Amino acid sequence: MTQVLPPDHPVVKPKKIGVVLLNLGTPDATDYWSVRRYLKEFLSDRRVIETPRLIWWPLLNGVILSLRPQKAGANYAKIWDKDNNDSPLRVITRRQAEKLQAAFAADDVVVDFAMRYGNPSTESVIEKLKDAGCDRILMFPLYPQYSATTTGTANDKAFMALRDIRWQPAVRTVPAYFEDPLYVEVLAQSILDGVAALDFEPDLVITSYHGMPKTYLMRGDPYHCQCYKTTRLVREHLGWAPEKLMVTFQSRFGPTEWLQPYTDETLKALPGKGIKKVAILAPAFSVDCIETLEEIQMEGREEFMEAGGEHYGYIPCLNDSAGGMKVIEAIARRELSGWL
């Protein structure tokens, strides 16, 4: 006897595998309210700001969200992709997802991207993949070095989205790949290519990583150690002397001590030590964004040159370059082992 299903019975679709590239996020535009919405979501994250809420909440909703969106919006406007009317971070992450989808053309894999803060939201993308028939999803935080403030909170958001799904897909998360041999090789080659593209020979190459309060390190966050290991492995791969490649930390704010040495203070001090030609890159970012394009490429240059520097070069993130995509695809295929 044939069973007749009610007309509103959910249709079971062919099983597929989903891959989500997870990035930090970006405002939808550079105006005050767009930036304010983004900053409120970002700075309300307990993984990012561990200050007790009784102290932080009045500061955030008072002074910070009143004044900071204007300055941040002006900085976003400096680097905004006018051709696409979008932020470079979202434009490039979308291209990464498109290229990864093409690489998986022969497999039954659906690739998409999502943002921890802003759009497209992690919840909407997981729901989209589930509706497409994905019963297995690989979450791929685009952070080579693990931190609770990046990989941890990206995974948190995905798990919160799963909490509200009745028929959950199986989920895997990509671990930190800061010491992956292919990543080290590709990052090292990007440095060689970046230096070769300059019209000067740098006295020093700086690997500037996004900073965090020192207390986070003391509480057990492995990020600091993983940053140093990435740079050491890259230096060894290049065969350079220790003094040729340096680690610094950028983007600090507030009165507390952050991971040191600070990128801005280092750039201001180097010319006085006779180091007047530098190249700099930001290995903690898989995609160029405001912290790299505005803070490092623009502000960093200004700080270094005003201090007496002569030549300053910025080496881009891996982005959707052939090497960068080779790393992403290799890691995705490795973590999909047993599913594909």
Rank of each mutant, 00 (worst) to 15 (best):
D193S: 12
M246S: 11
E265T: 09
V4F: 09
T150D: 01
A103C: 06
C134T: 08
P175V: 07
V111Y: 12
L245A: 11
Y183S: 08
D131Y: 08
H224L: 10
M305W: 07
Q168K: 14
V4W: 06
D199I: 13
I64D: 00
K16S: 03
V35I: 14
P88N: 06
R94M: 08
R136K: 14
P7E: 10
E98Q: 09
A176P: 06
A72Y: 02
E201H: 02
C227H: 00
L43A: 07
D108G: 05
E310W: 14
G272K: 11
K16L: 11
A97E: 06
T26F: 00
R301G: 02
Y223A: 00
P242H: 07
D83N: 14
E303V: 11
D164A: 13
T230R: 04
R333V: 12
V19H: 09
L89V: 07
R46D: 13
T231H: 06
C225R: 10
F200L: 15
K16A: 14
A269R: 10
E201G: 01
I275P: 14
V205I: 08
D156N: 06
R36A: 15
N84Q: 15
D131R: 12
E329F: 06
Y216F: 14
M325Q: 03
M160V: 12
T292C: 02
T207L: 04
M218A: 15
C134E: 11
A105Y: 04
A279S: 09
D164F: 11
L259C: 07
G272E: 09
A132C: 02
H210A: 00
I55E: 04
K244L: 06
L60D: 01
A176R: 03
C289F: 00
